[in-house]
């Protein structure tokens, strides 16, 4: 492998059609995201069939755009990295089909990527100091609309899950609460915004599973507590209280994430934490983690917001590291809605 390896990353696991060109796993030449938020907004959540329909419309346009912006000719690409798990099957197969065709056309390697693992590699793009080739181990928290899990990232890029949500993903809970409070979709950014000037101690929700002794989460419980509380006391749903309710929910959810992550650091004696996923864009979460980091002497890495969301640059970045390790896929790979690494 020469000193310039160009990877085309393709990501269609959920509702965004993404393509990116990344050099040597670090340098983003292009990172194109075609968001479908506006389309799904009116349904208050992602509709898988609609997502698939948009992907098939956009896939070639987005890939072309990524190559154009990067100013790279298609034949200069050294390998294609594509998310093939986990995600919505109808969405995944559009990206994987396109990637297979690309690789077959130019006879270049295909690298099948785990979407969750790719989220962690958004940090490789954001921080030069992170070197995935070293023997350093990390605790990694992935928080998004579909996932909320804690991982141990061991040497040789091996990922071990140490905890996960037992019900809703944290982003999903944000969406559901936002819908209940009639705030719109997507819930995360809206709740984040209105909570900024609101009282997070308006209601002190119990932190579910905080003493469970493991590293699993539950977010559905906080959501349900909020719903019951407001059903019982309808006056809480007054307009002036909505922001306070949202802020209280957010404070509880973030608190659980921070506490469990710190516990994991202590148990595994690791002081570097990689946070990623769409919910890592949440400002409360960023503040609380930075605060805890100072207190506990832990290094927290959170990528910039654009790299927290689903994107293909992170897929290309992980693709580079997998390629270096020789983890190449055949052109007969399938797509999977779930995965255990």
């Amino acid at each position: 492998m020469n000193d310039s390896t160009l990877i085309l990353g393709i990501e269609t696991s959920c509702d965004d059609t993404c393509a990116a060109v990344v050099r040597n796993g670090k340098e983003i030449l292009s990172n194109i995201v075609s968001s479908q938020n506006e389309i799904h907004e009116k349904y208050g959540g992602i509709v898988p069939e609609i997502a698939s329909r948009k992907h098939i419309e956009m896939i070639d346009i987005i890939i072309k755009e990524a190559l154009l912006v990067a100013n790279i000719q298609p034949h200069e690409i050294n390998a294609v990295a594509v998310t093939n798990r986990p995600g919505l099957l109808g969405s995944l197969l559009v990206g994987v089909g396109a990637s297979k065709a690309f690789c077959y056309y130019y006879k270049i390697p295909l690298i099948a990527i785990n979407h969750l693992k790719a989220h962690i590699f958004a940090n490789a793009l954001a921080y030069d100091s992170i070197d995935f080739n070293s023997q350093q181990e990390y605790i990694s928290l992935i928080v998004s609309g579909g996932h909320s899990s804690l991982y141990l990232l061991k040497k040789d890029l091996i990922l071990e899950e140490i905890g996960h949500t037992v019900d809703d993903a944290v982003g999903e809970a944000f969406d559901k609460v936002a819908r209940y409070l009639n705030l719109g979709y997507p819930g995360g950014p809206i709740i984040d915004k209105i909570s900024k000037n609101a009282n997070p101690h308006f209601i002190e929700f119990t932190r579910p599973m905080i003493e469970s002794g493991d590293f699993n989460f539950s977010f559905s419980g906080i959501k349900t507590a909020l719903i019951y509380k407001t059903k019982k006391h309808p006056e809480l749903m007054k307009k002036e209280n909505i922001a306070n309710l949202a802020a209280s929910f957010q404070a509880a959810a973030v608190d659980v994430l921070v506490q469990k992550t710190i516990k994991a650091c202590k148990k595994y004696n690791i002081n570097k934490v990689l946070i990623s996923g769409g919910v890592a864009a949440n400002s409360k979460l960023r503040d609380e983690f930075n605060y805890a980091a100072q207190k506990e002497n832990i290094e927290i890495y959170i990528p910039p917001i654009k790299l927290c969301m689903d994107n293909a640059a992170m897929v290309a970045s992980l693709g580079y590291f997998e390629l270096k390790k020789g983890n190449i896929s055949n052109l007969d790979i399938d797509v999977y809605s779930r995965t255990d690494f």
Binding site: E49, S52, H55, I56, I59, D60, I63, K64, P74, L89, G90, L93, V94, G95, G97, A98, K100, A101, F102, Y105, Y106
Partner: peptide, 19 residues
Amino acid sequence: DFTGGRIGISVIKIFSLLS
């Protein structure tokens, strides 16, 4: 079939783009 149809279309679209 939605799923099957999209597989063929995504592959063909990329061949056409590259060539």
